[in-house]
Design a protein around this nucleic acid. Structure first.
Lengths: 223, 223
DNA sequence: TAAATGTGTTACAAAGAAATGACAATCAGC
DNA sequence: GCTGATTGTCATTTCTTTGTAACACATTTA
């Protein structure tokens, strides 16, 4: 079932829309600000579509859309625009939105557009990339069609795990390869970095799925 | 077959271009002034593409382009610019062109561009250039129908990023390619030039969209 | 069960990378 | 030579990354 994120600061509008979408059978996430929206999206990379109000407190809808598109080219974005807006503004600024709906909108129209876009995404766009893989060229990680940025150290560690092709890698080997044989510091640095990678990569960093701990030995990378 | 309108006041240039385009199999319309061009276009709404000289008697090419775009977002517009023109003029005024060709131009180049734009229009349906791309012949950048002028160094860097096709390029590779392997100066010169390009290219140079920083590595070019 | 050991988690400060702005040198055209 | 654009240098600011330390939690072992 498709996940939809509604980013809208006015509680009653948001609630209204959510109830309607749930009735249509969607899984609905919500956020009252752009910042929150981006965070929610980060935690739910399998979201199909975002309903995005333009007038938001803090960063506005356009900026949110831009930010989303930086990492995800395949997600659908529908903007909610107030009728009072200058058309040039809408024209000029729209970066990355797939559709627009003017407020006040009727809910049938909204759900119709949502269904239509979801269909388009599913058929037209390539099906949502499952799996996860390291992209050497871009020095990042592709997960479900989203790019996750990695710092140099993180990338290096993940490279090592990746090259082991699912075999467990010894902690010390990681330490030696990344920090050199004569590293004077605390070997726990490996753990800390694994933790950092997990926070970026895992759905639930405390219950890791991709980077598995091999007790008394090291870590294993399962794609 | 595709209809092309040539708006150009100098008879021999116009004739020359027309002969060439007809030989390529296009249906060619002509006009010797902006006013006439708009009239012809009005009578031939199925025209695919307009070749538009900037220096015209009466209303100039920019105004013509603007007028065309008021009514038609999908037609292709290629501007013919004289080399002698002030860059600011090119900078400030151009609205809505899809491409630029500097005079004097060679006819092969012209037909190549025409074919390319026609193809784009036919396949994409929404040819109005939303993205951004490097124009090798003019050594400039086309962004949303506007030409952005680049200095030689800037152009070279952007070329390198462009050739990488969205992959991250290492700082040192840029340094080596542009300044040579034995450059004695400060490698930060790369950063400084990137910033200069960003100031020209980005909507908000401090929150770059097109030239992305890949931390600890280099830069990435997203069109 | 308690101690020992390995691992997870978080906060913080230092180091390092990149962005920025000002300035001087260079070069091209006039 | 003058003017303006281009280019490189440098100091300063801003931001990210990175290592450390302290503590919590889990697993093993005695």
């Amino acid at each position: 079932m498709e996940k939809i994120l509604v980013i809208e600061d006015e509680d009653n509008i948001r609630g209204f829309v959510i109830v309607h979408l749930k009735r249509e059978g969607f899984i609905v996430l919500e956020a009252a600000s752009g910042e929150e929206g981006l965070r929610v999206l980060d935690e739910n990379p399998d979201t199909s579509l975002v309903l995005l109000d333009i007038m938001l407190p803090g960063i506005d809808g356009f900026q949110v859309a831009e930010e989303i598109r930086k990492h995800n080219q395949t997600i659908g974005i529908i903007m909610l625009t107030a009728k009072t807006m200058e058309s040039d503004q809408v024209h000029g600024l729209n970066q990355g939105a797939d559709d627009y709906i003017g407020k006040p909108f009727n809910l049938n129209e909204l759900t119709a557009r949502v269904h239509s876009l979801v269909r388009r995404i599913r058929t037209h766009q390539f099906p949502k990339q499952t799996g996860i893989r390291l992209n050497r060229a871009e020095r990042c990680l592709i997960k479900g069609g989203n790019a996750i940025e990695l710092s140099p150290t993180e990338y290096q560690i993940l490279s090592i795990l990746d090259m082991a092709k699912g075999k467990a890698v010894n902690r010390n080997d990681i330490l030696d390869e990344v920090w050199g044989l004569d590293f004077p510091g605390d070997p726990k640095i490996v753990d800390v970095n694994i933790r950092r990678i997990r926070q970026k990569v895992e759905d639930n960093p405390s219950d890791p799925k991709y980077i598995e701990t091999v007790w008394g030995y090291g870590y294993k990378w399962r794609k």
